[in-house]
């Protein structure tokens, strides 16, 4: 049987500067032909300078507003069936198994983290979680992440510290068990201990859910805890080099200078 996989094919994406959309929509090409195949259970790391388009790639896969796919495709293969996800709504992509933890998670007033999680879990699984085991499951996940339990009854990400938001994203990862997880700079803003806790949780969830992972990062530190199978260097809207985990070590020493024109 064929492996489940997520495939990015010659993807070109422009952003519509939404701050100016009323005056005259200015389009700017950010991704200039990205090719990437992530099989289920593989870990891919994308590293690259600021502004090179890493978050744009992540956002395009999840279907975030403000990004326009000008050419290319994003394909999802599940149980041997391949389909383009470009026509799928954001929620359908999520239900198909795609998960994105954004660099800066959004805050929403008046919806508690626990209510949000239960609603999302119900949507993803197609049925409400068992009332008896749900609380235990949520408690256990928060314990793994060493999260303050009181966060569960607070408004989603409202007034959360940077670190708490990152923990809350990984909590969602654990509860929702996606097939493909895109983690955009989940490591930034976490101290060494918190990074270890979060990475342990990513690994624990992966062991069970066997998701394919796309880790976007600036630092090699996270890659010491979550071992990548492939490392890709991203520059100016493209993958300019791919290799094994040794490539990350090289980047740590030499930086991105040779990739920037």
């Amino acid at each position: 049987m064929q492996y489940d996989k997520l495939e990015v094919v010659d993807l070109c994406v422009s952003v519509v500067d939404n701050r100016r959309a009323y005056v005259h929509a200015e389009e700017k090409e950010i991704l200039k032909g990205v090719n990437l195949v992530i099989n289920r259970d593989e870990v891919h790391a994308i590293m690259g300078p600021n502004g090179s388009g890493k978050s744009t790639l992540a956002a395009s896969i999840a279907g975030a507003p403000g990004y326009k796919i000008t050419s290319g495709d994003i394909l999802l293969t599940l149980d041997g069936n391949t389909q383009s996800i470009l026509d799928l709504t954001v929620d359908a992509r999520a239900r198909a198994g795609i998960f994105l933890a954004r660099q800066t998670p959004t805050a929403v007033d008046g919806i508690t983290l626990s209510n949000f999680l239960r609603t999302a879990k119900t949507a993803i699984d197609g049925l409400a979680p068992n009332v008896c085991t749900w609380i235990k499951e949520l408690d256990a996940a928060m314990e793994h992440l060493k999260m303050d339990k009181s966060l569960a009854s607070r408004s989603l990400n409202v007034g959360f510290s940077g670190g708490e938001k990152k923990h809350a994203e990984i909590l969602q990862l654990e509860i929702l068990r996606p097939k493909f997880a895109i983690l955009d700079e989940t490591d930034s803003g976490l101290d060494v201990d918190a990074l270890k806790t979060v990475c342990d949780e990513i690994n624990r969830t992966k062991l069970d859910a066997k998701f394919g992972a796309l880790l976007i990062t600036h630092y090699t530190h996270i890659l010491e805890y979550v071992e990548p199978d492939f490392v890709h260097v991203f520059a100016d809207g493209q993958i300019v080099e791919s290799g094994g985990s040794s490539l990350a070590k090289k980047l740590e020493i030499s930086g991105y200078a040779e990739y920037i024109k």
């Binding site: 999840a62 507003p65 929620d91 999520a94 609603t119 949507a123 993803i124 929702l176």
Partner: peptide
């Protein structure tokens, strides 16, 4: 729109 996207990116349909 960012809030709407966030909720939908967790599988929740637009109306909900």
């Amino acid at each position: 729109d960012e809030q709407l996207f966030y909720l939908m990116s967790r599988g929740i349909d637009a109306k909900t």
